[in-house]
Design a protein around this nucleic acid. Structure first.
Lengths: 294, 294
DNA sequence: TCCCTTATACTCAAAGTGAGTATAAATTGA
DNA sequence: TCAATTTATACTCACTTTGAGTATAAGGGA
C-alpha cells in the first residue's frame, strides 16, 4: 500500500530515412536505444526528451509522439517508469562517439519485403514456428495470420510478430537463461526490451503514414515522386505500384510542383515537388492513404 | 540535473454502453475520473490498474489499453507522472458511494450527432469560435476543418476540437483565472485535465472500433443487429445506414447466428447473434470498418 | 541516331461504398 | 379477425475507389 517514490526514464526511438533505408539512432554499438532520466526543470516529458536528444545530436527534433509507458524493476531493487517516444528527423552526424545511426531492418530482417531476402527470412521463420505451433489450432491460426506466406502480409503487425517470436523463444533476448542454443532468428539484439520498443515504433509509424502526412519530416524540402515513394516503401517494407502511388499523392493535394526538375541523372528528368504549405501548417487533420502492392 | 524521485498515478477511463448511451465511471459527483497511486507489489502498470479498479467496482475489467502519460506538478512542489488508461466493460453497480456512471456526452454535448441537439450545439460553438478566429486564416481553417458544418464532420477529432475550444478559452477549466464570465460551452466540468483525458479516450475508441472488434466487450453475449448497431452509433456519435451496416458486419464474418430470436417486442422478431469464437479468441488481427452515414 | 533509362499519362476491370426500395414477420388495436 | 403499425431482413443500383496493366515522353550515352 501507499505511494512509492520511483524514477522516470525517457527512451527515444529516433527515425530517419536515408537512401531508401529507415535508420534509427542507437548507442553502445547498436545494442541500445538512447535514453536518459527525466530531469528537474523539464516542464513536460516531451520537453525533457527534446532537450536531451538535441544535446546529444546537436540537431533539432521534428515530429515527436509518445509510444508507450511501462514499469520495470530498477537495478537496486527499486521501481522505475520508462516512457518511450518516437521522433522523426533527418539523419545528421552525431557528436557522441557512442551514438550511431543503424538501419532498422538490421534488427528486423523479416520485416523488409522490398527484396526477396525478406521473403526468405519469413519462410525460415515459418518453419521454426510451425514446429513450435505443432497441432495446436490457436497457435497455427496466429502463425498464418501474422506470417501468412505472401498473400496476406500485414505490414503493421510488427509488434505482434515480435511477440509471437518471443513467445516461441526464437528471440535471443528471451532465451538468456538457456545457454548454447544458437539464435534461430536473424537480426541484431538489444539490451532489455529496447528491441520490443523499436518494434512498437515501427508498427506505429507504418500505421501513421497511411492516414497522416508525417513523411515530410523525413524528406528534404524538395523531392521527386520517386524519392517520396521510396521513403514510404522503406518505412512500409513493401513495394508500391508507381502509377497508383502517383495518382494518390496528386489527387490528395499533398504536394505541389516547384517548377524545377532534376538533371544529370539517367533517364527523363523528374519534376521536383514540395509539400503544400497547408499540409505543413495544419497537419492535425488530413489523411493520406498508401496503395500497397502485392 | 540528475534523476529525481517522483510519484506515479494511474488514471482510468472506464467505458460501458448502456441503453444506447456511452457511460464513463466517475468519482466525486462526476467531477473526476477514478485514479490511484501505483502501489508496491504491482507487477506492471496494467496489473496495478486492474487490481485497483476491481477493488473499487467489484467487477472484472475486460479490454484495457494505455492512453497517454504526462508529467505534472504535484501538490507539495514535487513532480508526478500520470498514466491514463482506457478500459471497456459492461455497466455494473458500483459499491463505492463516491463512484457513479455518467453519460460521456454530458461532458461533450457537441460530440453527439445522433440527434439534432448535437448539431445545434455545434452551431452555437461555431458562432463563438468565429468571433475568436476573426480574420486570421489559420484559425478559420482549423475551425472549418474541426467543426465544419455538417458535411465533413470527422468524429475522431474529439481531442483536437477540445483543444481548440481550450485555446479559445471556451472551456471553463481553462478560464479559472477569469472570474464572472459564464461558460460559453455546455457540458459538465472536471478537475485538473480529466476532461481532456476523457476526450483522448473517446477519440481513441472512435478510431479503434473501425478496425478492431472491441465492441463485444461492451455487449452481452447474445445481441441483435440493432443492438450492435446502436452501440456503435453511441460511440461514434453518428447514425449509421442500417442495410449497409448489416452488410458490412455479415460479410466480415464478425458474428454468427445463435438460432434464437427476440420476442415480446413490437415488430418482427430479430435474430440473435453472437461474436464468432475466432474473433473472440484472436482479436489481435482482424479489422471491422463501419459505414458512417451523412 | 538509336538505345537505354526513368518519368509521366492513360485505360480498364473488379471491388467497395452510399443510398434507396421492397418484402417478411411479428404486435397492436379497431 | 383483420388492417395498421412496427421492426427486421433482403435486394438493387449508381458511383467511387482500388489494383494492375499499358502507352507515351524526355532526357543521357554509345
Amino acid at each position: 500500500m501507499g505511494n512509492e517514490p520511483i524514477q522516470a526514464e525517457l527512451i527515444a526511438v529516433l527515425v530517419a530515412v536515408t537512401d531508401g533505408a529507415p535508420r534509427v539512432l542507437t548507442i553502445e554499438n547498436g545494442s541500445a536505444l538512447p535514453s536518459g532520466p527525466l530531469e528537474t526543470g523539464h516542464r513536460s516529458l516531451q520537453a525533457g526528451l527534446r532537450a536531451w536528444v538535441e544535446r546529444q545530436t546537436h540537431h533539432p527534433l521534428g515530429y515527436v509522439e509518445q509510444l508507450y509507458t511501462f514499469a520495470d524493476q530498477q537495478r537496486g531493487g527499486g521501481r522505475g517508469i520508462s516512457v518511450s517516444y518516437l521522433g522523426l528527423t533527418r539523419e545528421a552526424p552525431v557528436l557522441d562517439p557512442d551514438a550511431a545511426w543503424r538501419g532498422w531492418y538490421e534488427y528486423f530482417p523479416w520485416e523488409d519485403h522490398r527484396h526477396p531476402e525478406g521473403q526468405r527470412h519469413v519462410a525460415a521463420i515459418v518453419r521454426h514456428l510451425a514446429a513450435w505451433a505443432g497441432p495446436v489450432p490457436a497457435r497455427q491460426a496466429r502463425l498464418t495470420a501474422l506470417f501468412g506466406a505472401g498473400e496476406g502480409w500485414n505490414e503493421e503487425l510488427v509488434l505482434q510478430r515480435y511477440e509471437l517470436l518471443w513467445e516461441a523463444k526464437l528471440i535471443p533476448e528471451a532465451r538468456r537463461a538457456r545457454q548454447g542454443a544458437p539464435a534461430p532468428v536473424p537480426g541484431l539484439e538489444m539490451t532489455h526490451d529496447h528491441r520490443r520498443i523499436l518494434a512498437t515504433a515501427i508498427a506505429r509509424l507504418r500505421a501513421k503514414i497511411k492516414y497522416r502526412p508525417v513523411m515530410f519530416e523525413l524528406l528534404p524540402r524538395d523531392f521527386t515522386m520517386l524519392e517520396l515513394q521510396q521513403t514510404m516503401e522503406a518505412l512500409a517494407g513493401q513495394s508500391l505500384h508507381k502509377p497508383n502511388f502517383r495518382r494518390l499523392i496528386t489527387q490528395q493535394d499533398l504536394v505541389e510542383e516547384t517548377g524545377r526538375t532534376t538533371s544529370g541523372l539517367a533517364g527523363r528528368p523528374a519534376k521536383l515537388f514540395r509539400f503544400r504549405p497547408a499540409v505543413l501548417e495544419e497537419r492535425r487533420i488530413a489523411g493520406s492513404k498508401l496503395p500497397l502492392v502485392r
